Computed example of a mutant assay.
Amino acid sequence: MENFLDVDLTLEVLGYVQPMIVAGAVLGLVAGLLGPLVVTRKMAFAVHGTSELAFTGGAAALLIGIGVGYGALAGSVVAALLLGLLSTRNSDRDSVIGAILAFGLGLGVLFLALYEGRSANKFGLLTGQVVSIGSTDLWLLIGSSVAVLAVLAFIYRPLHFASVDAAVAVARGVPVRTLSVVFAVLVGVATALSVQLVGALLVLSLMITPAAAASRVTASPLKATLLAVVFAEVSVLGGMVLSLAPGMPVSAFVTAVSFLIYLVCRLASGKRERVQ
């Protein structure tokens, strides 16, 4: 009888952990591939602003009773489009992001105040709730990620060119404006997916920190991208494993691992510069 109970318990644990691992691996891949471009284009603040609108969309979804993932995705895409269309000049970018961020955050707080459901759902929007990812959310995440990666593969070369030197890219006929809007939407989708894992407040730990760490140890775009993917995967999967024993929020461990990797890379970079 005890053996049967042990088997049932093991199957239950596997059923609980497997969606977490799959979701984390997919998000790590997407964040790792997009991150170096985000860092190159100096869009860290834009990612933060987009995550706030993903939070607003998720809060609206809670209020009207639909899937949080769909709401977060809709909110982040709207934010990305607004940022891409309104930030016509680099000098305008920060002010536009700040205005949209503040409006979105206030609206999200209002939606949560009106929501009368479980408080854990409200908290999960800010800190992530990967443990509650079901089959529907998982397929949404995988489908959205495949779409992001397919579009990124199609536009990567002109996008990277425009990211490194926009003025020369314009002179060569590259549609820099269109690429900026498309990339903003890709970042918005990836941000919405990341919100499910680490929450709106900590999304930078996936979208920025691994890429920032990679940029400290290599100047090669290819190597930086590969390292960013590795760092993102280690942060996500390592954070998940570490969170299982104490039963604490996954986001705390993901961000801790990610920041530790960044510190190690920064120290290694500083040591190398002193030797040279």
Rank of each mutant, 00 (worst) to 15 (best):
Phe4Glu: 10
Asp6Gly: 12
Thr10Gly: 15
Leu14Gln: 15
Gly15Trp: 07
Tyr16Trp: 14
Pro19Gln: 15
Gly24Ala: 15
Val26Leu: 13
Leu27Glu: 13
Gly28Thr: 06
Gly28Ser: 11
Gly35Thr: 05
Gly35Trp: 02
Leu37Ile: 14
Val39Ala: 10
Arg41Phe: 10
Arg41Pro: 08
Met43Ser: 12
Met43Gly: 03
Ala44Ser: 14
Ala44Arg: 00
Ala44Cys: 10
Phe45Arg: 12
Ser51Asn: 09
Ser51Cys: 13
Ala54Glu: 10
Ala54Asn: 09
Gly58Ala: 11
Ala61His: 07
Ile66Ala: 04
Ile66Asp: 04
Gly67Ala: 04
Val68Ile: 15
Tyr70Arg: 02
Leu73Arg: 03
Ala74Lys: 01
Gly75Leu: 11
Val77Met: 02
Ala79Thr: 11
Leu83His: 12
Leu85Pro: 00
Leu86Ser: 07
Arg93Phe: 09
Val96Gln: 07
Gly98Ala: 04
Ala99Asp: 01
Leu101Cys: 11
Ala102Met: 06
Phe103Glu: 00
Leu107Trp: 03
Val109Gly: 06
Leu112Gln: 06
Leu114Arg: 07
Asn121Ala: 08
Gly128Ser: 10
Gln129Thr: 12
Val131Pro: 00
Ser132Phe: 13
Asp137Glu: 14
Leu138Asn: 08
Ser144Tyr: 10
Ser145Tyr: 08
Ala147Arg: 04
Ala150Thr: 13
Val151Gly: 11
Ala153Trp: 06
Phe154Ala: 14
Val164Gln: 02
Ala167Ser: 14
Ala169Lys: 05
Val174Lys: 04
Pro175Cys: 05
Arg177Phe: 12
Ser180Met: 07
Val181Pro: 00
Ala184Trp: 02
Val185Ala: 06
Val187Ala: 03
Gly188Asp: 09
Val189Met: 05
Ala190Asp: 11
Leu193Phe: 06
Ala200Tyr: 09
Leu201Lys: 06
Leu201Tyr: 05
Leu202Tyr: 14
Val203Asp: 05
Leu204Pro: 00
Leu206Gly: 02
Met207Trp: 05
Ile208Glu: 00
Thr209Trp: 01
Ala213Arg: 01
Pro221Ser: 01
Lys223Ile: 12
Ala224Leu: 02
Leu226Gln: 07
Ala228Arg: 01
Ala228Asn: 01
Ala228Phe: 02
Val229Arg: 00
Ala232Arg: 00
Ser235Asp: 08
Leu237His: 08
Gly239Ser: 03
Gly239Phe: 00
Val241Lys: 02
Leu244His: 09
Pro246Glu: 12
Gly247Val: 13
Met248Cys: 07
Pro249Arg: 13
Val250Met: 12
Val250Ser: 10
Val254Ala: 02
Ser258Pro: 00
Phe259Ile: 07
Leu263Pro: 09
Arg266Val: 02
Leu267Gly: 14
Ser269Ile: 11
Ser269Leu: 03
Lys271Gly: 09
Lys271Pro: 02
